[in-house]
């Protein structure tokens, strides 16, 4: 069996859906954040696969941008989550309730 574009796309869609499920169902900020990274990487996989099978390098270049931006996002995001943890001693989203109507 040869592995074709559709296989990559199915894996990518599965990863994306798993990530989305994680974001919706998980209650811990760090795990939510990990799931978000998984969604980004699902998109990266799709980009690379399209790029490889369409013989067009634009997608690969885009992946570099996505990885760089995701790294910046993680740096800021983890700093924020740690700062919040220090104040609240908790990384659960139920505790993010001081801003309500």
């Amino acid at each position: 069996m040869t592995v074709g574009l559709e296989h990559y796309l199915i894996v990518s869609a599965l990863l994306f859906s798993l990530g989305l499920l994680g974001v919706v169902l998980r209650r811990n900020l760090l795990l939510i954040y990990l799931s978000l990274e998984m969604m980004l990487n699902a998109a990266n996989l799709a980009l690379v696969a399209f790029s490889r099978f369409n013989h067009n390098l634009d997608g690969q270049v885009m992946v570099f941008f996505v990885i760089t931006v995701a790294a910046a996002e993680v740096a800021v995001g983890l700093a924020l989550i740690v700062a919040l943890y220090r104040r609240r001693q908790s990384a659960h989203i139920e505790d993010l309730a001081s801003l309500r109507l």
Binding site: L9, S12, F16, G19, L36, M39, L40, A42, A43, N44, A46, L47, A49, F50, S51, N54, D58, G59, M62, V66
Partner: peptide, 12 residues
């Protein structure tokens, strides 16, 4: 994440 996945599909 939605944006990047959308871009991937459009590009594909």
């Amino acid at each position: 994440a939605f944006l990047v996945y959308g871009i991937a599909l459009v590009f594909g």
